[in-house]
């Protein structure tokens, strides 16, 4: 490497060429190497859109915020119902509890919980796909939220 003094050097004075080398014959056999690799790979014929990394991340954030709002609203509704239930007499509450225990076993409740989780995941994916398909900009969505 050559030694140089460079006080206050302007970048446009720095030579742009001659910095990098490639191994001899690199470009001559690159396509053969790549072709050997890809020959065995399947081709994705489905309608896939490549979303840039930056957009993908923002869409995930937007979908998460939208999901959070939906869950908060649902939570608020459940809370309101619970508040109403508190107004029931103690005896009524026991009757209701007995009814639910007799109606649903543990297995049913677990299946229901797993299904809800699965649905939440699918909704998040569906939201992302919808935003991409409709061409809705994530900035617009975030502002609206």
């Amino acid at each position: 490497m050559k030694n140089q003094n460079h006080p206050n050097i302007k970048i446009d004075k720095i030579p742009k060429e001659g910095m990098f080398k490639v191994p001899d014959g690199y470009f001559e056999n690159l396509s053969d190497r790549i072709l050997t690799k890809v020959k065995t790979l399947p081709i994705e014929a489905s309608k896939v859109r490549i979303i840039p990394y930056s957009r993908r991340r923002l869409l995930r954030i937007a979908a998460t915020i939208a999901g959070f709002i939906i869950l908060s609203f649902a939570g608020y509704q459940i809370f309101q119902k619970t508040q109403k239930n508190d107004l029931l007499s103690q005896a009524d509450a026991y009757d209701v509890a007995d009814y639910y225990v007799s109606e649903f076993d543990e297995r049913t409740l677990m299946i229901s919980a797993l299904e809800s989780e699965q649905e939440a995941k699918m909704e998040s994916e569906a939201m992302i796909n919808f935003l991409v398909d409709e061409g809705i900009e994530e900035e617009t969505l975030l502002q609206a939220l």
């Binding site: 050559k2 460079h6 050097i9 990098f20």
Partner: peptide
């Protein structure tokens, strides 16, 4: 494979 000068 880098053959630049010090400033580069």
């Amino acid at each position: 494979y880098f053959t630049g000068t010090e400033i580069q």
